[in-house]
Simulated scan of single mutants.
Amino acid sequence: MRFAPLVIVASLFAAGSAFAAGPCDLEIEGNDAMKFNKDSLSVPASCKKITVKLTHTGKLPKASMGHNWVLTKTADMQPVANDGIPAGPAAGYLKAGDARVLAATKLIGGGESDTVSFDGSKLKAGEAYSFFCSFPGHVGLMKGTFTVTK
């Protein structure tokens, strides 16, 4: 029984490691008050693949309070949001094939989540990136900075 404590500690460490997100795996929440729980996200430039999980912690359906997570260069944020409105909810309020959209989750409602993974090597340290929700009118409150660190 001398090894029992060691086994327990090793098991706890292994379980904790399985749930620990790395620096390239990010999580963010949106709610019914039209707010993200974070106003900035960052990843190291060494990330080859970046994964962002969006969880809608509210209760309202996506038809009335849908949220998504969209990444663009900061200068492109408002034009992408404006150009996406005519695309409608089925397209996540994003214009089809818009090359300015660097990554985006699908539009989700209360209690739902979605994950997007994208090529981190296409992002550059020092470039100004922003994330936002493209649901009409949400970009004013639901936005933040996305930084690639050296």
Rank of each mutant, 00 (worst) to 15 (best):
P61E: 09
V52R: 00
S11P: 00
V148L: 06
A125P: 07
L107H: 11
E127F: 01
T145Y: 03
H138G: 04
A33P: 02
A4T: 13
P44Q: 06
Q78R: 14
M1V: 12
A128L: 07
F146T: 01
S130W: 05
K95T: 00
E127K: 02
P5V: 02
P89L: 13
M1Y: 12
L60R: 14
D76E: 13
F3M: 10
A18C: 10
A99C: 05
K53F: 04
E112T: 00
F118Q: 08
D83S: 13
G110M: 10
P44H: 03
T105R: 01
K62R: 14
V7P: 07
F131Y: 09
S17W: 14
F13K: 03
A63V: 07
A21D: 08
T145S: 15
A33K: 14
E127Q: 07
L60H: 11
A87H: 05
S130G: 15
D119N: 14
G66S: 09
A103L: 03
L71S: 04
R100W: 05
M1H: 14
L54K: 00
K122S: 11
I28P: 02
N82V: 15
Q78H: 09
T51Q: 01
Y93N: 04
K59T: 15
G110F: 11
A128I: 00
V101N: 11
G137C: 07
D76L: 01
A96M: 10
H67M: 13
V148D: 02
K59S: 15
V80K: 09
N82C: 05
G97S: 11
K59E: 14
A75W: 10
N31G: 12
F132R: 10
A90I: 06
N82H: 11
G30E: 00
G137F: 08
N82I: 15
T51F: 00
T105G: 04
P86I: 03
T57I: 15
A75N: 12
G140V: 10
T105N: 01
K95Y: 05
L26F: 05
L6K: 13
V7W: 15
P136S: 02
S121W: 13
I8F: 14
K124A: 14
G88A: 09
F146N: 05
P5F: 04
G111H: 06
L71N: 03
A103M: 06
K73S: 06
G109C: 12
F132Y: 12
W69S: 01
A87G: 08
L107R: 08
G140E: 12
I8M: 13
G66I: 02
W69Y: 04
R2M: 01
A125Q: 10
D114C: 02
D25N: 12
D83L: 12
K48G: 15
G109N: 11
L12T: 05
K53D: 06
H56R: 06
Y129N: 01
A99V: 08
R2L: 08
D98N: 08
G88C: 10
P61R: 07
V80R: 12
M77S: 12
F36G: 03
A87Y: 06
K150T: 04
L107A: 09
H67D: 09
K48M: 10
D32M: 05
